[in-house]
């Protein structure tokens, strides 16, 4: 599904190159649950941003679903966002002025999905995540964990084939974090959604089936996780 070849990212200042990523080459297959780990400043988030096409690599080649997306124009990128990629953020990034229902509905509107189909999908998501009662509340009326559930529901609404999550549990307490991670695992296992997450926590990484360790912009280690017993 994803193929990175020799991805490099650096910033030049006064002629000196500051590398954030170096020689990153990897393949992520459909249905994988990959955790990117590493110390602060290692380049995890940059890698995820490149995977999400929010940033462009300075050098290298990126293929998404057998298509070269290294230098994609805006229109095509938006098409990918609408149909294939869902984002989940550490700070949830729900739109404050919209209710839970409207937040989940927003991507469907951009995808121009008909009103009855929209309703049924949102109802389904609300039901699945147990937040039906909260549908008319605004984000600031919810707890962090609930907000993140809405965030994930929103990411799933457009039925993406891949979810990119940047420290999805970074702002949450451990019990809530566990809940979110189980949800991810379930989505991955049962619906075959590819998930790539950045995380600091070994424990969270265990939920996935592969871990990329990054340090100083270089992939140091790429290990498979044995099928977890936690399920």
């Amino acid at each position: 599904m994803i193929q990175l070849k020799n991805i490099e990212k650096y910033y030049s200042s006064k002629g000196i190159k500051h590398y954030v990523l170096r020689h990153v080459t990897t393949t992520i297959k459909q249905g994988e649950f990959v955790s990117i780990m590493g110390p602060s400043g290692a380049g995890k988030s940059t890698l995820l941003n490149i995977l999400g096409m929010l940033e462009e690599p300075t050098y290298g080649n990126y293929e998404f679903m057998d298509e070269d997306v290294t230098n994609l124009n805006e229109r095509k990128r938006i098409e990918l966002y609408r149909n294939h990629i869902g984002f989940v953020f550490q700070a949830y990034h729900l739109i404050d002025e919209m209710t839970v229902y409207e937040n989940i509905e927003a991507p469907l509107l951009y995808k121009k999905i008909g009103s009855s189909e929209r309703k049924s999908r949102i109802a389904d998501l609300l039901d699945r995540f147990n937040i039906v009662a909260k549908k008319d509340l605004f984000p600031n009326q919810l707890s962090g964990g609930q907000q993140q559930l809405v965030g994930i529901a929103r990411a799933l609404a457009a039925q993406p084939s891949i979810i990119l999550a940047d420290e999805p549990t970074g702002n949450l307490q451990s019990a809530q974090a566990e809940e979110i991670m189980q949800l991810f695992q379930k989505l991955n296992k049962e619906e075959g959604i590819t998930i790539i997450q950045v995380t600091h926590s070994e424990k969270n990484a265990e939920y996935g089936n592969r871990i990329l360790h990054i340090a100083d912009g270089v992939v140091k280690d790429d290990v498979a996780v044995r099928d977890s017993v936690k399920i």
Partner: peptide, 9 residues
């Protein structure tokens, strides 16, 4: 930012 990654033009 959020709207853009949700696919807003």
């Amino acid at each position: 930012g959020v709207r853009k990654v949700m696919g807003s033009q």
